[in-house]
């Protein structure tokens, strides 16, 4: 994928972003940027506004003020559907697969938005529809193959193991052919071995699919294994930015974040 025509400043640039829920300010004057092919980690205590940020970026909720510039256009007023077309895909902290659909269907449904056939076509089994359907199944199976999940293609997604569900959710996000992947605590609930496998997978994805990532995570080793740069949010505000090493030394971070949860694996 050709990316050289984008200058860094306009790949993803968030400026003075605010989000109020009633009187409560969840995101306060947040500004940051993301470079192409970069993996940016986001940490912060519970309630710091990390997931709210993802909701704003993916268009699920509208921002109160500020701007989000993605690939040279402002997207803070766009709908989730429009944003998905612009190449931003995400996963959720609590896995949101279509549990009653099969594994293959979970992937196909993301592919199908790129297809061009109407329900009537499908009903009449028009050659065009059959061709498109084949294309979608083929592409979906290929993607599943990359995740070594072809043998599970016809299982109900809800019946998969926890780790497989996590991986399927990532695979589904990739089916949209995104340029930016938003990962919300992908390693939550995993043991060390699983976490290492996931880290490898994400590294490989980043290379294979040439995309950028925003990664919300609590586990420092996981972030450090993937990201060169990270943001720290607290009560909706950016309190620190830098390399994992710098963050580790940052007094404010230690006070705000670590002070209360020293026992964490920090």
């Amino acid at each position: 994928m050709e990316q050289s025509d984008f200058n860094d400043a306009h790949f993803l640039k968030v400026a003075l972003l605010n989000k109020n829920f009633g009187g409560q300010r969840s995101i306060i004057d947040l500004s940051f940027h993301l470079n192409p092919k970069e993996c940016l980690g986001i940490i912060g205590p519970n309630g710091a506004g990390k997931t709210t940020l993802f909701n704003l970026l993916s268009g699920i909720i509208p921002s109160t003020s500020g701007s989000i510039i993605w690939l040279n256009q402002e997207i803070q007023k766009k709908s989730a559907v429009q944003i998905s077309y612009l190449g931003i895909a995400r996963t959720f902290q609590n896995i949101r697969l279509f549990k009653q659909l099969t594994v293959l269907e979970n992937i196909r449904i993301a592919y199908d938005t790129q297809l061009t056939y109407t329900p009537l076509d499908a009903l009449l089994r028009s050659p065009h529809a059959i061709k498109e359907e084949k294309k979608s199944i083929h592409a979906s199976m290929e993607l599943l193959d990359l995740f070594s999940m072809t043998s599970l293609a016809y299982e109900a997604a809800g019946g998969l193991s926890y780790g497989d569900q996590r991986r399927l959710e990532i695979a589904r996000a990739l089916a949209l052919r995104p340029r930016l992947l938003l990962l919300d605590e992908p390693a939550a609930g995993m043991n060390e071995a699983e976490m290492n496998k996931l880290m490898e997978l994400l590294r490989w994805i980043q290379k294979e699919f040439t995309l950028s990532m925003l990664l919300i995570e609590h586990h420092m080793p996981f972030i450090m294994g993937l990201c060169n740069r990270m943001l720290v949010l607290d009560f909706g505000q950016l309190i620190a930015e830098g390399t994992p090493e710098e963050i580790r030394q940052n007094r404010r971070v230690i006070e705000a974040y670590l002070g209360e949860e020293e026992k964490n694996e920090f």
Binding site: I60, A80, R96, I109, A110, D112, T113, L176
Partner: peptide
């Protein structure tokens, strides 16, 4: 919500 996020 997830359906919208997949561009549908």
């Amino acid at each position: 919500v997830m359906v919208s996020l997949l561009g549908i």
